[in-house]
Simulated scan of single mutants.
Amino acid sequence: MRIGVLAKAAGVSVPTVRYYESIGLLTRPARQGGQRVYSTEDVKALSLIRHCRDLDFSLDEISDILASVQRRLPCSETKASAERHLRSIRKKIAELCALEATVAALVSGCETTCSGSAAPDCVILQPGQPCCG
């Protein structure tokens, strides 16, 4: 199949297919008459890449997952990758919660101390205001 058919089958764009080839996530296909020719295995690999991207795995993590699939490693390898990814997600959530609390406090402070003042006087913009860290 041609690149456009592959892209459509996997739900990605043609430039995305080319990009994944350029960084080595997809193997470069054989060419026939100067055009790339893909197989159903390429559709499976590209669909897996897309699924992993939907789960917010990094490209490096996806590369490791693809290698595990291609080498038919035990599922425990993929589970370990997913557990590391889950820890990372939970850390980001905690950081975002702290950031949300800080911004909410600044907004509340603005409402009670400087609402209606000129923007440069706003408590939100004052250096030294507590921030998450």
Rank of each mutant, 00 (worst) to 15 (best):
R72S: 09
E21R: 11
R31F: 11
D64M: 14
A101P: 02
V14T: 09
V5D: 12
L73M: 10
I65N: 02
S76T: 15
G133T: 12
I3Q: 04
I3H: 03
R2V: 11
A9W: 04
L6C: 02
C132Y: 13
A45N: 06
R90N: 10
S117G: 14
A98K: 08
A118H: 07
S58Y: 08
E111C: 03
C132S: 15
D64E: 09
R28S: 11
R50K: 12
P74C: 09
A67G: 12
Y20I: 14
S58W: 08
L25H: 11
R72K: 15
L59G: 06
A98N: 11
R72H: 15
A104R: 06
L73F: 12
L46E: 01
I89M: 03
M1T: 15
V37E: 01
P120K: 06
S68K: 00
G4D: 15
A94R: 12
L55Y: 07
E111T: 03
A30H: 06
I65Y: 03
R28T: 14
I62L: 00
D42P: 09
E77H: 11
G11M: 10
T112M: 00
R90M: 11
L59Y: 04
L66E: 10
V5S: 07
G34A: 06
V14Q: 04
S68Q: 01
G133P: 07
G34Y: 14
C122S: 07
R84G: 05
C52Q: 09
S76W: 05
D54R: 06
D56C: 14
Q32S: 12
P127C: 06
Y19A: 06
L106S: 03
K92A: 10
E77N: 13
S39T: 15
S108Q: 10
L73K: 15
V107H: 00
V17G: 07
Q70L: 05
G4A: 13
L6M: 10
R90K: 07
S39K: 12
Q129C: 14
E77I: 13
V17C: 04
S108T: 13
C110P: 00
T40Q: 14
C114A: 07
I124E: 09
C114P: 06
P127H: 10
V43H: 08
D42E: 07
L26F: 01
G4V: 02
E61V: 02
R53L: 11
L26P: 01
I93K: 03
K8F: 03
P127R: 05
Y19E: 07
